[in-house]
Amino acid sequence: METLNYRFEQGTQRLKASPQVVGVVGSGNLEVLIEAADLAGACAIEITTAAVGFGPIWEAVMRDFHQRWLLADTRISINDMGATPAVVSLRMDQAVQTMLGEPR
């Protein structure tokens, strides 16, 4: 198992809903917990993954996600069992959409 941490500053969109979980930890999938948190305007992401050694790919996917949503004061926890970057992006977008009350 590997734990990766990312922090993105200067977000503009704040989420106010209750914490939400999307996805299911299982073979080739992941779960995402997203919640509002007082982080001085930052978005903090912690990833626990069974796929060791993919830090640069995770960083690229997280940067792309942050550029799409520009979240502020948001904590995201990801438990991964080897999901592909496309599945990671899908689940993270679902988590934000759930917090915003948008249809999936």
Rank of each mutant, 00 (worst) to 15 (best):
M1G: 15
M1S: 13
M1V: 11
E2G: 02
L4S: 03
L4K: 04
L4C: 05
L4D: 11
Y6V: 05
Y6N: 04
R7H: 04
R7I: 13
F8I: 00
F8V: 01
E9N: 13
E9L: 10
G11C: 07
T12P: 14
T12N: 13
Q13H: 04
Q13Y: 05
Q13L: 12
L15R: 00
L15V: 08
K16N: 06
K16A: 00
S18D: 13
S18F: 09
S18P: 03
P19N: 03
Q20H: 14
Q20C: 06
V21Q: 00
V22W: 06
V22Y: 05
V22C: 09
V22A: 12
V25N: 04
V25R: 08
G26L: 00
S27N: 10
S27L: 10
S27H: 14
S27K: 12
G28P: 12
G28D: 01
L30D: 00
E31T: 06
E31H: 05
L33W: 00
L33H: 03
I34R: 10
I34Q: 10
I34L: 11
I34D: 05
E35V: 05
E35A: 08
E35W: 02
A36V: 00
A37S: 03
D38E: 14
L39V: 10
L39D: 03
A40E: 15
G41V: 01
A42H: 09
A42F: 02
A42R: 11
C43K: 11
C43I: 13
C43P: 05
C43R: 11
C43W: 03
I47D: 00
T48A: 09
T48G: 08
A50H: 06
V52M: 07
V52A: 11
F54R: 13
G55V: 04
P56D: 08
I57N: 06
W58D: 06
W58C: 03
V61N: 05
V61G: 04
M62S: 01
M62D: 06
M62I: 14
M62E: 07
R63S: 13
R63P: 01
D64L: 02
F65Q: 03
F65D: 07
Q67I: 14
Q67T: 15
Q67W: 01
R68V: 10
R68F: 08
R68C: 12
R68W: 07
R68A: 14
R68G: 06
W69K: 02
W69F: 14
L70S: 09
L71R: 02
L71D: 11
L71C: 07
A72L: 02
A72M: 02
D73K: 02
R75T: 00
I76Y: 07
I76F: 11
S77C: 12
S77M: 10
S77R: 13
S77I: 14
S77V: 15
N79H: 07
D80M: 09
M81F: 15
M81D: 12
G82T: 12
A83G: 07
A83V: 08
A83D: 07
T84P: 04
T84S: 13
P85E: 00
P85C: 03
A86Q: 10
A86G: 08
V87N: 12
V87Y: 03
R91D: 04
R91Q: 15
R91A: 13
M92T: 11
M92Y: 11
D93G: 12
Q94C: 09
A95G: 14
V96G: 12
Q97A: 14
T98C: 03
M99G: 02
L100Q: 15
L100G: 05
G101M: 10
E102P: 01
E102A: 11
P103C: 15
R104T: 10
R104S: 14
